[in-house]
Design a protein around this nucleic acid. Structure first.
Lengths: 129, 129
DNA sequence: ACGTAAACAGTAATCATTCGCGTTTAGGAG
DNA sequence: CTCCTAAACGCGAATGATTACTGTTTACGT
């Protein structure tokens, strides 16, 4: 089929997002890809990141220090954010109890389409400094 | 003592924050107080909101549609955010199990100073439309 | 009354993100 | 192969929330 040539940059952006666990910002993705795709535009990164959010191939985990951070792992999982360095790491061993979601639906009266649990603190690297 | 006159606006901002459960933005607070404090500056609202965050009298619950939202209720509780209208409501009947916090500390290797559980969906009002 | 330190207003600056628009590209039809 | 169309793209300008700057005002101690 090989119809991917038209989406070279789109595919590269998604691949970049999928290949990392740093929960990157748009600019991080841009800087990663720029060396191998010299004519990449930052606007294209933003445009495609928004696109991936819309089609459910990526999620936003909110802003850290005023910058939006993305996650190519759409499976629900818990995050830890260091308020010092801004690092975002996955906590795979922790899960939000499933019954909380239905409790949220009755409590809010609306529908629930996602839930996000985030811990914040100072990471081990920052504590050393 | 009556030394509050110097902090009239600061106090008004905190009182406004405490008196509502809408989890307001800086501009919302500004618009609320502007009629009764005509010479209030939006910068003052931002400055004091940041100050309250720093001294722990208020917390940020992140950005909704690109706008930071604050909460004068610093007791840990769960939020529900409507992605349609941007409303933020408290879910008092739901709590994050305490053991998850210690699990987060061991999982991250760092310290944990706060945790935030947020459900998103379409609220009952928006579903009617 | 005077000095000082902090709060404040008003406005300019910042910076992440989005928008507009002309260009390029892929892929299909003739 | 050439033309056509729709979508992706680059680039630069625009937007808008937030912050910084600067001069002024205020409360309070001396």
């Amino acid at each position: 089929m090989e119809r991917t040539k038209h989406f070279k940059k789109r595919d590269a952006i998604l691949a970049c997002l999928r290949s990392t666990t740093v929960h990157p910002s748009a600019e991080w993705v841009y800087n990663q890809l720029k060396p191998e795709i010299p004519n990449l535009s930052l606007g294209t990164v933003y445009r495609n990141l928004t696109y991936f959010k819309e089609i459910g191939e990526a999620v936003s985990i909110g802003t850290v220090k005023g910058i939006e951070r993305f996650d190519g792992n759409t499976a629900p999982h818990v995050h830890y954010i260091c308020t010092c360095c801004g690092a975002v790491i996955d906590l795979h061993d922790i899960a939000v109890p499933a019954e909380l979601q239905s409790a949220a639906e009755t409590g809010s009266g609306g529908s629930v389409c996602s839930c996000q649990l985030t811990f914040t603190g100072i990471c081990s690297d920052c504590k050393k400094i």
